[in-house]
């Protein structure tokens, strides 16, 4: 009813809009934090050097035959290691990069990816080639794991606290807005009630307004959140060994860091806030009606 829509008072709902914008932004950041940390940890773990090098000194006549049989034996015993015999050019390039020009016959070098017990591997290799030199990867994971555990726990705690804070602040903001609208229109409600009109018509108008403001506030928070996440991800690019960010937002925010369901949650947030605002107005007005009667 356009007449009643014009009749209703429109109190300023800026506190609701700004409050929901801020809460959505903070909640979005907090929600993205555990996913971002998990993504970063996975990326770091993936980049940890797990390559084991086995050098077979060229001593005796059986060395060439051993260089051919050892990779097969390793693959048979440790199937996922992908033992590979490096070609001579690669070996010479490696040795040249490692130290002064290599004099003498080139050793045969095997590389394999192995995450298990290194003594078991060494025992197997030495049983086949006693002269083999096994060079394990540097102990990166042992240093990284405690740090990553702390990071993941902190991220989860921050997300939980932010979620709890949002669960308290959002209903409070919506309640205040609903109450403000109801109080500002107390006279309009009284007139309508006295004339035998349905108060629910007015309540629907109030609910629509509060829902719209809640939607806009949350949407503004999401709009603020996207560049914030972009800047944070861009700042983390060197740490994550990602290529420098260029161009559009989609290249800014690495999809591997934040999953699709999180983006879905972000896009649903304004709708959920609007629904919560709509429900809160009806709740407040119903309570007000009960008290009045």
């Amino acid at each position: 009813m356009t007449c009643l829509s014009r009749a209703t008072d429109r109190p300023a709902l800026w506190p609701l809009l700004l409050g929901l914008c801020l809460v959505t932004w903070l909640a979005g950041l907090a929600l993205a934090l555990p996913y971002g940390v998990d993504g970063a940890v996975q990326r770091w773990e993936g980049q940890v050097n797990s390559q084991i090098v086995i050098a077979l000194p060229v001593i005796g006549k059986e060395a060439p035959a051993l260089a051919d049989s050892l990779p097969k034996a390793l693959t048979a015993t440790f199937p996922e290691t992908h033992a590979t015999l490096l070609p001579e050019q690669e070996v010479s390039r490696l040795l040249a990069a490692w130290s002064a020009p290599w004099e003498g016959p080139l050793p045969r070098i095997l590389t394999l990816s192995y995450h298990g017990d290194i003594t078991r591997l060494a025992a197997f290799v030495h049983s086949t080639a006693p002269e083999a030199i096994i060079v394990p990867p540097p102990p990166q994971l042992t240093k990284l794991t405690p740090l990553m555990t702390v990071l993941q726990q902190t991220a989860r705690h921050v997300a939980l606290m932010a979620g709890l804070a949002a669960a308290l602040i959002v209903p409070a903001l919506l309640y205040l807005a609903a109450r403000t609208v109801a109080l500002a229109n107390r006279q309009q409600q009284a007139v309508l009630w006295r004339l035998g009109g349905k108060l629910s018509v007015l309540h629907r108008i109030f609910a629509r307004r509060v829902a719209l403001m809640a939607f806009l506030g949350s949407l503004a928070g999401i709009v603020l959140l996207l560049p914030s996440l972009g800047f944070i991800t861009a700042a983390l690019h060197p740490l994550l060994r990602l290529p420098p960010a260029e161009g559009s937002m989609s290249s800014f925010i690495s999809p591997s860091l934040l999953p699709v369901r999180l983006w879905l949650a972000f896009s649903l947030m304004p709708v959920l806030m609007a629904l919560a605002g709509w429900a809160m107005v009806h709740l407040v007005c119903a309570r007000q009606g009960q008290q009045a009667s």
């Binding site: 014009r6 309009q188 007139v191 006295r194 004339l195 035998g196």
Partner: peptide, 30 residues
């Protein structure tokens, strides 16, 4: 029943954002 009763009360209330004509027309709108 209220829509069939006209009450001229001691201190009548109006919708302050509507003109007098709109206020008078309100019972018909309802």
């Amino acid at each position: 029943l209220q829509q069939r009763i006209g009450y001229i009360e001691a201190a009548p209330l109006f919708m302050d954002r509507l003109t007098l004509a709109d206020n008078i027309a309100l019972p018909l709108e309802l």
